[in-house]
């Protein structure tokens, strides 16, 4: 399985980015896009498991472009099936942990998960 990110889009319904390790160009583009989207306030929701109703999503807090992993908040009891737990206080070097955001984080490999990106909202 190759990880994909569906970006909800005005003109195309959704555009897909793939984290295909064999395609270096696509991978580079996907890394840059995800990093830029998080900076711009997009909400990325990654599939962190499934139940009988369908995929279970978790909001991505940060992205580590060196390891191609989404970083989500985790709880000791709840751990996504496709994730690896990381002790708290070890954010990736290029990002800083936000104040008041303590607790365990979970890393979900972008290359093995599907995610949906939602643009900042204008209310309604």
């Amino acid at each position: 399985m190759i990880g994909t990110l569906a970006i909800l889009n005005v003109s195309a319904g959704d555009t897909k980015l793939s984290f295909d390790p064999k395609n270096k160009g696509d991978l580079k583009r996907a890394r840059e896009t995800v990093t830029d989207m998080l900076k711009r306030g997009f909400c990325i929701l990654v599939e962190a498991g499934r139940d009988e109703k369908g995929p279970l999503y978790r909001r991505v807090q940060r992205f580590d472009p060196k390891t191609d992993e989404y970083i989500i908040a985790g709880t000791p009891e709840e751990k996504p099936s496709n994730a690896r737990a990381v002790p708290s206080g070890t954010p990736p070097p290029e990002t800083r942990a936000r104040k008041g955001r303590k607790g365990p984080t979970v890393r979900v490999p972008a290359g093995r998960s599907t995610a949906v990106a939602v643009a900042p909202t204008s209310g309604g």
């Binding site: 909800l8 929701l45 990654v46 999503y57 939602v118 909202t121 209310g123």
Partner: peptide, 22 residues
């Protein structure tokens, strides 16, 4: 697409979903 945005936000971060909605 709007429905998908509502659904994913509710499933992924319900607190934020209520916060950003009118």
């Amino acid at each position: 697409d709007d429905v998908i945005a509502h659904l994913t936000l509710m499933r992924g971060d319900e607190h934020r979903y209520w916060k950003v909605c009118n």
